[in-house]
């Protein structure tokens, strides 16, 4: 992956945790299901003035790629949004055989611009809302600065630990697309499967209760992981992927030339994901890797620059 969290592993250690007595669903005296947890987060952030968006309909490596984060983070306008974003990290696929690793999973993304003064308290409130009892669990903010070479972006913040497990990335964006943030946006990225495994006290992601009507996470996604892992690693036509990368790059530039930063940015997302697939197929050498990352960065930065220009925002 070349997305947010380049230095990180996804779901690399997402064990379940014994839930506290407080972790309950009002309708049943048991911990929130996967979907109930999402609904609870939606409700929490909706009540705090966020626009609740639906996932972006493109493949991407992290919620940060969503234009509601990347493009909306730029410029002076107030912007508060929350959404679930499916993330695809082809190299993390394990054919459904690893209890902690997936090539497709969900991030819950909150973006608040300007960053509110009580962002940490708001975040802790959201944990309480989904049933984390801070009287018996150890919540810690551990330094983890974020940088995305492909988005020309960086920020300072933490990974939030719950009993030693990383459950959220908490970042104050400082630059996006090479532009200083004016004002700074705060970004929260929850690892939903990890949080759910923790709340439901489950050791295997596929054992998560997806809903309260007997459907498990495995029922929904296990076969998907098997087939997609095989395709990512073994089947995907690499010539077609190289071609797709070139075409996305060309289309990005075509859109930029026409003064259309949003479609240009979509093509940058497409190029980034195509690159990730090529990585999974093992056909990009170490030497070429940097060149590809540089190409994606140029596309993303070009789109961000055009977006700034279109809105008449000074760098």
């Amino acid at each position: 992956m070349i997305a947010r969290g380049e230095r990180r592993r996804s779901l690399d250690s997402a064990p379940g945790f014994r839930h506290s007595a407080a972790v309950t669903d009002p309708s049943a005296t048991r911990p929130l299901s996967f979907q109930a947890m999402i609904l609870r987060l939606h409700q929490y952030w909706s009540e705090r003035g966020c626009v609740i968006l639906q996932p972006y309909d493109m493949e991407m490596g992290a919620g940060t790629f969503h234009p509601a984060t990347t493009l909306r983070a730029l410029g002076p306008d107030t912007w508060n949004a929350a959404f679930v974003q499916p993330c695809r990290r082809p190299t993390d696929g394990r054919y459904g055989e690893n209890p902690n690793r997936l090539q497709h999973y969900y991030q819950y993304q909150v973006i608040l611009k300007p960053s509110p003064p009580d962002l940490q308290e708001l975040y802790l409130g959201s944990l309480a809302a989904i049933g984390v009892d801070m009287g018996v669990h150890d919540i810690r903010f551990v330094e983890d600065d974020w940088e995305s070479p492909t988005l020309g972006a960086w920020g300072l913040g933490w990974e939030v630990w719950c009993d030693g497990m990383e459950v959220t990335q908490f970042t104050y964006f400082q630059q996006m697309g090479g532009y200083d943030m004016k004002p700074v946006a705060g970004e929260l990225t929850y690892g939903l499967e990890r949080l759910a495994m923790y709340i439901q006290d489950v050791d295997n992601v596929y054992d998560l209760r997806f809903n309260d009507a007997g459907v498990s996470y495995g029922d929904v996604f296990l076969e998907n992981e098997r087939q997609m892992s095989a395709w990512n690693f073994e089947v995907a036509n690499t010539d077609a992927l190289f071609d797709a990368f070139r075409k996305a790059a060309a289309e990005c530039e075509n859109s930029l030339a026409a003064g259309l930063p949003i479609p240009a940015y979509e093509q940058a997302i497409k190029a980034s994901h195509t690159f990730n697939l090529l990585q999974a197929r093992g056909v990009i050498s170490v030497a070429e890797r940097q060149a590809y990352i540089g190409r994606v960065r140029d596309l993303a930065k070009g789109a961000c620059g055009a977006w700034m220009e279109k809105n008449g925002w000074a760098a």
């Binding site: 002076p76 300007p114 960053s115 509110p116 003064p117 600065d145 920020g155 300072l156 104050y172 400082q174 943030m181 004016k182 004002p183 700074v184 705060g186």
Partner: peptide, 11 residues
Amino acid sequence: KSMRWGAESRS
């Protein structure tokens, strides 16, 4: 390493 934040960071 230092950072800006909040409404003040419009500048």
